[in-house]
């Protein structure tokens, strides 16, 4: 790949719009091309400046109050239409992924998987709608980990990725099916990231899923499984999942 042909790929790479194979090819070009690295750096700097939260216009409180007052009754805890739709989507995705025969055989497994996936998305949405998405607010992992002790069978390993742009915001307890699971909450810019730590090594979750602009990534975390749910874009979700997986091997929790 020469610089000319890769130059038009640069924004696509930067915006997370390349497929994994093309991304890798571009990265190998990037390793040897200072000009492209410089161009990429410029784009990153520009984005960081534009994404500065103080640079974004927030809706005035008066406007928010006015609209909230005119909004029809909000089906707060009755999220059924969302859930029903979500379930139908997952079922549709599963049908699309395999043959119809396979679908018959695996129907039960798929239903269980859909149920769990749905629980995780619903948990994330509930947390977003709640007054606070965390039960314990802390950017210090040494506070968050002990907080879980006694509330769940096993405290999850807690890492902070502030240096990589994903600071720890705190933790909470949520439900996946009937199990109480610890949830680590991170922030990335204006996004909230939930990491559900499931005790099973194979809870039967898809490796990834999307629902209404929200994404899910599943990864192994020692003998547990981490399910990451957020509305970050796909590329950043992948990057965070990778960090989380590496955090486990590179820096064991103290």
């Amino acid at each position: 790949m020469n610089c000319e042909s890769s130059r038009h790929l640069l924004p696509l790479y930067f915006d997370g719009e390349l497929d994994p194979a093309a991304s890798r090819a571009f990265e190998s070009h990037l390793d040897g091309c200072a000009a492209c690295r410089q161009a990429l750096h410029e784009l990153e700097t520009l984005r960081a400046r534009l994404r500065d939260p103080a640079a974004r216009f927030a809706a005035p409180a008066a406007l928010r109050a006015r609209l909230a007052a005119t909004a029809p009754a909000r089906p707060r805890m009755r999220n059924r239409p969302w859930l029903a739709l979500a379930a139908s989507w997952l079922a549709a995705a599963a049908v699309g992924a395999g043959s119809a025969g396979l679908w018959q055989d695996r129907q039960h497994a798929v239903q269980a998987q859909a149920q769990l996936t749905r629980d995780l998305f619903a948990g994330h949405w509930r947390a977003l709608a709640a007054a606070s998405p965390v039960d314990v607010v802390s950017t210090d992992r040494h506070t968050v980990k002990p907080w879980f002790a006694g509330k769940v069978a096993e405290s999850p390993p807690v890492h902070d990725f502030a240096a990589q742009g994903f600071p720890l915001a705190g933790g909470r307890i949520d439900y996946a099916g009937s199990a109480r699971v610890p949830v680590l909450v991170y922030r990335h810019g204006g996004h909230l990231i939930d990491v559900f730590v499931l005790a099973s090594a194979d809870p039967g979750l898809p490796r990834q899923a999307q629902m209404r602009g929200y994404g899910l990534r599943t990864l192994a975390l020692g003998h547990a499984t981490a399910a990451v749910v957020s509305d970050m874009d796909e590329a950043e979700l992948d990057r965070f999942a990778q960090l989380l997986a590496q955090g486990e091997t590179a820096a064991p929790a103290r």
């Binding site: 216009f57 809706a59 406007l63 928010r64 609209l67 909230a68 009754a73 089906p75 239409p81 739709l85």
Partner: peptide, 22 residues
Amino acid sequence: MDATDPRGLVGELALRQLDAAY
């Protein structure tokens, strides 16, 4: 989908994304 008022859902969505809209 059951008969829950879709306006409730849309209102909730719009309020959640009010900063983006503004």
